[in-house]
Design a protein around this nucleic acid. Structure first.
Lengths: 143, 143
DNA sequence: ATGCGTGCAAAACCTTTGCACGTCA
DNA sequence: TGACGTGCAAAGGTTTTGCACGCAT
C-alpha cells in the first residue's frame, strides 16, 4: 500500500504523521498526474479547508528530504510534483494534454557514456523530460 | 562572428538594435557559462549602469522569440541562460563547480524510440540536462 | 510533557506592467 | 517621424518567515 510506504519512510526520518500531512500526501496518491502547488493546495483544501499554503511549502521540503517527491520543471510552465515511489529517480513521458506523467526506464546509453568518457565528464545526476501526447490524447487532438 | 549572427537574426525578426540590447547580448557572448537573471543584470550594469531589470526581462522574451536563448532549469537552483548559436535545441553537460555548460549532440536513441513506439507516445519535445564535474574541476575537488 | 508542525499575517522575493520619454530605422 | 524600446515605480504573484498555539509521540 502506498500510504504505508510513504508514512514509514517519513517516520524513519523522524517526521510526525499529522492530519495535514496525511491530507497533503493523500492528494498526491489519489492524483494520477503531477500537479502544481496551486492545484495541490486546492485539492488539499477540499479535504481540510484550513490547510495553509505554508504547510504545503513546508511539506514539500519534508517530502524532498525523504526522497519521496518527483519535481518536474517544464521550460515554460510551473513546477509540478508527484510522488516518487519507484526508484531513486525517474524520467517521465509527460502528456501535454491530460498532464499524465508516466515513468520510464533510464536513458543513459552506450553512446552517451562514450561522450562522457571522451570529455572526461564526471556525471553526478541527470534529468530527462519527454513531452508529447499520450496514446489516449493523441487520438482526440483537433486543436 | 557571433555578434553579427545574433543581430542579424534579431533584425530578421523586426527587432531594433539598441544600446541596451547590445550590452545585454554582449554579456552572454563574453560569458562562457549560463547565468542567472541576477548575474546577467549585474554584468550588464558594469557596461551600462542604467540598465534596468525590466529591460533584461523584456529582452529574454525577445531572445526566446528569436530562438537565440538556451534556458536551463536545474531542479534546485535558479533558471540560467546562455546564447543558443548552435542548432535548434541543445543538451548540456553542466559543471556543478564552475558552471560551464557544454552542448552535446542528441540523445534520443533506438532504445528510447522503441519505448515511445510501444507506448504510442507522440513525442513533441524533450529536455535533457546532465550535471556533474567537468574535466578541469574534477581534478581540483576536495570539498 | 516537549518539541515538532501548523495557521496566520507580514515580509521578502521575483516578475510584470503602465506610463512618459527617448531613440533606432 | 513613428513605432518600438527603455527607465522608473508600482502592482502582482509566489515563497519564506516569526510567532503563538496545538497536537503527535
Amino acid at each position: 500500500m502506498d500510504y504505508e510506504k510513504v508514512f514509514n519512510k517519513l517516520k524513519e526520518k523522524g517526521y510526525k504523521i499529522t492530519k495535514q500531512r496525511k491530507v497533503i500526501i493523500e492528494v498526491l496518491i489519489n492524483c494520477n498526474k503531477p500537479i502544481s502547488i496551486e492545484e495541490w493546495l486546492l485539492l488539499a483544501k477540499r479535504n481540510n479547508p484550513n490547510i495553509n499554503q505554508s504547510t504545503i511549502y513546508r511539506n514539500i521540503d519534508v517530502l524532498e528530504d525523504a526522497s519521496l517527491l518527483n519535481k518536474i520543471r517544464p521550460k515554460d510552465d510551473k513546477i509540478i510534483y508527484s510522488l516518487n515511489l519507484e526508484h531513486d529517480h525517474s524520467h517521465f513521458l509527460i502528456c501535454k494534454k491530460c498532464g499524465k506523467a508516466e515513468p520510464i526506464e533510464c536513458c543513459i546509453n552506450e553512446e552517451m557514456i562514450k561522450i562522457l568518457k571522451d570529455k572526461q565528464f564526471n556525471l553526478i545526476e541527470h534529468n530527462l523530460e519527454l513531452y508529447g501526447y499520450c496514446n489516449k490524447c493523441n487520438k482526440h487532438i483537433d486543436n
